[in-house]
Simulated assay, not measured.
Amino acid sequence: MILGNIKAFAAVGAGLLMGIAAIGPAHAQEAWKLGTLMQPPALGATLDDEFAASVSKASAGKLAVERQFVGNEQEMVSQVVRGRLQMGATSAFGAGVAVPDATVVSMPYVWSSDAERRFVTDRFAMPVMKKLFAEKGLELLAIHEAGYNGVFCKMDCSNPASLKGAKARVSPAAASKMFWQSMGANGVQLPISELWPGLEQNLVVAADLPFPFYATTPGAQSAPYFVVTQHLHHPWLYFVNKAAWDKLDAATRDAIAKNLPDSNTVRDRWFAEERGKITDFVSKSGKVYNISDAQRAEWQKLVTPNLPGLIGSLGPGAQELFRAIQTGKEEFKKTKG
């Protein structure tokens, strides 16, 4: 009798274990990390957190995505390519270590207006960029906002002539090198994490970043002269390691893609934040030069003659992307007309 009960309990226990084993994988939640250099209180960190939350929610419990700070954009992108991080968020310049042809969207003075940029990016650039990312083992999910670069310095540099011979921080992107060479500056290549001590130690006296990011960094104190040149734009790119993405079932991938934050809403929030930060910065004795169109043309005329050569030096993917942008710009003119 006792032996029979033991066998019965053993059978029940085995059944329970088999049931738990069967249920476990179906309800297992995979932890994903979203690598980014954004940190609170920057709006970019908030937007990254919202993006991560949207992916988690749309996955219906399959994924739990969290932002992870990585101070070097190029290193972060490399980690996503290798699968050490599942997701990344960065500028086209940051992504350039893996997808150099994508930097075409951030070429100096490639856009005539913000409305043109939004129209062309979403309808014409995005499909080509998705293909370029896929070729490098990445799935591009969205193109959001990181603002337009302005130039900031330790001295008044509202006139581009003041930068001739000055030591300026250059990012690894070819477009950044071309811009500062066009200014006649002495470029010093530094990752973003080394820019702040570089300014303090006078290794460099000038650099360029979007204002909302700049305003949250030590550069706002050590280099408090900001010129609203808007010479190049930074799309904020969200991407996934393609192997990790392809492991998700089709329904989950589709749900994530359909439930991402709206690009234009994010863009509007970014620029509203920028206007507020500029007002606050000026109220605290920061120097912001909102240059006129005529003044901006003085900067532009130094750069645009070098643009065709830079485009021509890039690969066939860059040529394809540039053609798509030009086609989109023509279509935009028709819609405006």
Rank of each mutant, 00 (worst) to 15 (best):
P160L: 07
T121N: 01
A31R: 13
E30L: 13
V99P: 00
S222Y: 13
K130T: 04
A134F: 09
G184N: 01
T279H: 05
M178F: 06
S285N: 13
L140S: 04
T265I: 13
Q29R: 12
L85K: 04
L132P: 00
R84G: 06
L63I: 10
V170Y: 06
A161D: 14
K336G: 01
D49G: 11
N5Y: 11
A21Q: 09
R84Y: 11
E331R: 09
R67N: 10
K154M: 13
P308C: 03
P308S: 05
D254K: 15
D268Y: 04
K130G: 02
V55P: 01
P197F: 04
P218D: 10
D156Q: 08
S112M: 01
W299R: 05
K33S: 14
V205M: 10
L163Y: 04
R169H: 08
T252V: 09
K333Y: 00
G312V: 01
D246N: 14
S313P: 01
K136A: 15
V227R: 07
S292V: 01
L63C: 05
A142Q: 11
S162A: 15
V12Q: 01
E274D: 03
K287A: 05
R117P: 00
E194L: 12
Q201V: 11
A272M: 05
T103R: 00
C153T: 12
D208I: 07
M129R: 06
G13T: 10
V240C: 11
L17I: 14
R275W: 06
Q326F: 08
G35S: 13
L237W: 07
E298V: 06
L85V: 14
A220I: 04
